[in-house]
Deep mutational scan, measured.
Amino acid sequence: PEDEKKAKEALKRANGDEDKAKEILRKLGVDPDRAEELLRRLR
């Protein structure tokens, strides 16, 4: 869904750096736990 698209985009923008991607997602208003879960799934 929408969050998943955001997560993929964030990872791309962060050049695969998960911590940076998490930060980006947090700024986009995605719940930190949700962000973590999404990134884990994309790994």
Score class of each variant (00 low, 15 high):
residue 16 G to I: 01
residue 26 R to D: 06
residue 33 D to S: 11
residue 33 D to Y: 10
residue 40 R to Y: 07
residue 12 K to Y: 12
residue 28 L to V: 05
residue 19 D to E: 14
residue 2 E to G: 11
residue 11 L to M: 09
residue 30 V to S: 01
residue 10 A to E: 02
residue 22 K to W: 07
residue 7 A to L: 07
residue 39 L to W: 02
residue 14 A to G: 03
residue 42 L to V: 07
residue 34 R to F: 10
residue 20 K to Y: 09
residue 15 N to H: 12
residue 1 P to M: 13
residue 10 A to L: 02
residue 40 R to D: 09
residue 1 P to F: 14
residue 12 K to N: 09
residue 9 E to W: 15
residue 2 E to D: 15
residue 14 A to Q: 02
residue 39 L to A: 01
residue 27 K to G: 13
residue 15 N to A: 09
residue 43 R to Q: 10
residue 40 R to E: 11
residue 33 D to W: 12
residue 22 K to H: 06
residue 22 K to Q: 05
residue 26 R to F: 13
residue 27 K to H: 12
residue 1 P to N: 15
residue 2 E to F: 10
residue 11 L to W: 11
residue 29 G to W: 01
residue 31 D to T: 10
residue 4 E to W: 15
residue 25 L to F: 01
residue 19 D to K: 14
residue 32 P to G: 12
residue 12 K to S: 10
residue 3 D to Y: 08
residue 42 L to F: 09
residue 38 L to W: 05
residue 4 E to A: 09
residue 32 P to C: 04
residue 35 A to Q: 03
residue 13 R to W: 14
residue 20 K to D: 06
residue 37 E to Y: 07
residue 38 L to M: 08
residue 23 E to K: 07
residue 13 R to S: 12
residue 38 L to G: 00
residue 42 L to S: 03
residue 17 D to H: 06
residue 32 P to Q: 08
residue 43 R to T: 07
residue 42 L to Q: 04
residue 3 D to S: 05
residue 28 L to K: 04
residue 15 N to Q: 10
residue 19 D to F: 11
residue 10 A to G: 01
residue 29 G to A: 03
residue 41 R to K: 14
residue 22 K to G: 04
residue 21 A to S: 02
residue 13 R to L: 15
residue 20 K to E: 10
residue 25 L to E: 00
residue 35 A to H: 04
residue 26 R to N: 09
residue 43 R to D: 05
residue 42 L to H: 04
residue 15 N to W: 08
residue 31 D to A: 13
residue 40 R to N: 12
residue 27 K to F: 11
residue 21 A to P: 00
residue 39 L to D: 00
residue 22 K to F: 12
residue 18 E to Y: 15
residue 19 D to M: 13
residue 8 K to S: 09
residue 30 V to D: 00
residue 20 K to P: 00
residue 42 L to G: 03
residue 8 K to C: 05
residue 16 G to E: 02
residue 33 D to M: 12
residue 19 D to Y: 11
residue 23 E to D: 10
residue 31 D to G: 10
residue 18 E to I: 15
residue 20 K to I: 14
residue 23 E to V: 07
residue 25 L to D: 00
residue 26 R to S: 11
residue 1 P to G: 14
residue 9 E to M: 11
residue 2 E to Q: 09
residue 12 K to E: 12
residue 13 R to I: 14
residue 4 E to F: 15
residue 8 K to N: 05
residue 11 L to P: 00
residue 7 A to N: 01
residue 33 D to G: 11
residue 35 A to N: 01
residue 17 D to W: 04
residue 32 P to K: 11
residue 4 E to P: 04
residue 18 E to R: 11
residue 30 V to E: 02
residue 3 D to G: 06
residue 13 R to V: 12
residue 7 A to T: 05
residue 5 K to Y: 12
residue 39 L to M: 08
residue 5 K to V: 13
residue 17 D to T: 02
residue 31 D to N: 10
residue 21 A to H: 00
residue 5 K to A: 14
residue 6 K to F: 13
residue 20 K to A: 12
residue 14 A to R: 00
residue 18 E to Q: 09
residue 8 K to T: 07
residue 8 K to F: 12
residue 21 A to L: 04
residue 16 G to C: 06
residue 17 D to G: 02
residue 35 A to C: 04
residue 32 P to S: 11
residue 15 N to S: 07
residue 15 N to T: 03
residue 41 R to D: 10
residue 4 E to I: 15
residue 42 L to N: 04
residue 6 K to G: 05
residue 14 A to P: 01
residue 28 L to P: 00
residue 36 E to T: 08
residue 20 K to F: 08
residue 30 V to M: 15
residue 26 R to L: 15
residue 19 D to Q: 14
residue 13 R to Q: 15
residue 37 E to A: 10
residue 39 L to H: 00
residue 10 A to P: 01
residue 39 L to E: 00
residue 36 E to I: 08
residue 4 E to N: 06
residue 23 E to Y: 05
residue 19 D to H: 12
residue 19 D to I: 13
residue 25 L to Y: 01
residue 32 P to L: 10
residue 12 K to I: 13
residue 21 A to D: 00
residue 10 A to F: 02
residue 19 D to L: 13
residue 31 D to P: 15
residue 14 A to K: 01
residue 19 D to A: 15
residue 2 E to Y: 08
residue 41 R to P: 05
residue 16 G to P: 01
residue 8 K to V: 13
residue 41 R to M: 14
residue 9 E to K: 08
residue 7 A to I: 08
residue 5 K to I: 14
residue 20 K to R: 10
residue 31 D to R: 08
residue 38 L to P: 00
residue 36 E to W: 05
residue 29 G to Q: 03
residue 6 K to N: 09
residue 37 E to T: 06
residue 6 K to R: 13
residue 4 E to K: 06
residue 16 G to Q: 04
residue 7 A to Y: 04
residue 27 K to M: 14
residue 31 D to W: 05
residue 36 E to M: 08
residue 34 R to T: 12
residue 12 K to T: 09
residue 41 R to N: 13
residue 40 R to A: 12
residue 26 R to G: 09
residue 39 L to S: 00
residue 15 N to M: 10
residue 5 K to M: 14
residue 37 E to V: 07
residue 42 L to A: 05
residue 2 E to M: 10
residue 32 P to N: 11
residue 13 R to D: 10
residue 39 L to C: 02
residue 6 K to C: 07
residue 39 L to I: 14
residue 17 D to Q: 04
residue 34 R to C: 05
residue 40 R to V: 09
residue 38 L to R: 00
residue 25 L to S: 00
residue 28 L to T: 04
residue 30 V to K: 01
residue 8 K to I: 15
residue 12 K to V: 10
residue 36 E to H: 06
residue 13 R to N: 10
residue 33 D to T: 11
residue 3 D to I: 08
residue 9 E to V: 08
residue 25 L to V: 01
residue 32 P to H: 08
residue 25 L to K: 00
residue 34 R to S: 08
residue 28 L to A: 10
residue 1 P to R: 13
residue 26 R to I: 15
residue 41 R to E: 10
residue 6 K to T: 11
residue 18 E to G: 06
residue 2 E to V: 08
residue 26 R to W: 11
residue 16 G to A: 03
residue 9 E to S: 07
residue 6 K to V: 14
residue 21 A to F: 05
residue 27 K to D: 13
residue 41 R to W: 13
residue 27 K to E: 15
residue 12 K to Q: 13
residue 5 K to H: 12
residue 7 A to M: 05
residue 15 N to D: 09
residue 20 K to G: 06
residue 1 P to I: 13
residue 5 K to P: 06
residue 28 L to Q: 13
residue 3 D to P: 04
residue 27 K to Q: 15
residue 24 I to W: 07
residue 25 L to N: 00
residue 13 R to C: 08
residue 12 K to P: 00
residue 30 V to T: 03
residue 3 D to F: 09
residue 29 G to E: 02
